[in-house]
Design a protein around this nucleic acid. Structure first.
Lengths: 170, 170
DNA sequence: GGTTTTATGTCAGTCTTGTTGACTTTCCAA
DNA sequence: TTGGAAAGTCAACAAGACTGACATAAAACC
């Protein structure tokens, strides 16, 4: 809608990928794809009585064993009270272990237990399978573009966290 | 974790983009990017006392004026009770109009009112700005890949809805 | 014409996950 | 050593999802 269709009046070059229509389709693609992205883990989580918040905590504890609650808060972008409820149930259920920090005893270092790692694997396997199928059918160049756009879409502070995680490339 | 790192034992070709590590990074990229994707509209919505659910309804009513409640339910993947709560407030607030269907009087055709369209523009402008910046910095080839991967990631029925929306290309 | 199905709306109750506010323990620095 | 800041926990509340039951109207079927 509004007035023009292009974002800055294309100058003869092929800026057609920046038209409002193309941007709207991109927005919708994100919406629909994210639904698929979470669908498989959601089904598994439900069987165990957990929600997406549990998945996120488990995922990032697995990726950064020994991480602190505060670091997790930064990554997940929720309040500590919200995260705490999730962590409490995971600890009670024996999926996560919370050890008092050595340097600073106010901190808690978080680890997955053996069954925590097993559950993480189950969730991750399902999500990776979908991702792998999408990657394979789209091909390596498409995947590189996919990653490039997603990284540009992140807020700067989240991109920092993202890059700190393993395998950001040499 | 688990045993191997590759999905199917790479055969010398460059299947390195299918390693579990790469897939995990893709999963995390989706997570972080989606946060950025919703951040700007979320701020606007909050000022008006609405949530993401309202945004989704407004977006798709704008994209398919006259759509029915049932169609919206399919697209959004929520229960009718959930959608109804959202629609009721939008109608009360004069952003959405619900007209009894002409062919089938059981149906309700949904439209944005003038102020509904204005609000949609405000939300969309913010979200498009972020998307445009990401697209521009990544470039056209990357955008094509981005779209390709996202489409492969969708569930089949959602991809159908996605393709029915305007401008899926000639 | 009468029955069944479909489309929508509503009421009540629950669950997950987010929020704010208040509190404890620990650390650190003036 | 004491006062403030930081990390984490507990309690209460709100938004928004869900299920289930039920109501109304219109279309479809037989």
């Amino acid at each position: 809608m509004a007035e023009g269709s292009g974002s800055s009046g294309q100058r003869g070059e092929d800026l057609l990928f920046l038209t409002d229509e193309q941007l709207r389709k991109g927005i919708e693609a994100m919406f629909f794809a994210y639904r698929g992205f979470t669908a498989d883990p959601d089904r598994i989580l439900e069987k165990h009585g957990y929600g997406r918040a549990h998945h996120r905590a488990i995922h990032f504890i697995n990726r950064s064993p020994g991480t602190t609650v505060n670091n997790l808060l930064d990554i997940l972008g929720v309040t500590k009270q919200s995260l705490n409820r999730v962590l409490r149930t995971l600890i009670e259920d024996g999926l996560v272990e919370s050890r008092v920090g050595t340097r600073d005893k106010r901190e808690r270092n978080l680890f997955l237990t053996e069954s925590g790692r097993a559950f993480e694997e189950e969730l991750s396997r399902a999500q990776r399978a979908r991702m792998r199928a999408a990657y394979r059918s789209a091909g390596p160049e498409a995947v590189a573009g996919f990653r490039k756009v997603l990284e540009s879409m992140m807020d700067a502070d989240l991109r920092r966290h993202f890059n700190k995680l393993k395998d950001s490339g040499p």
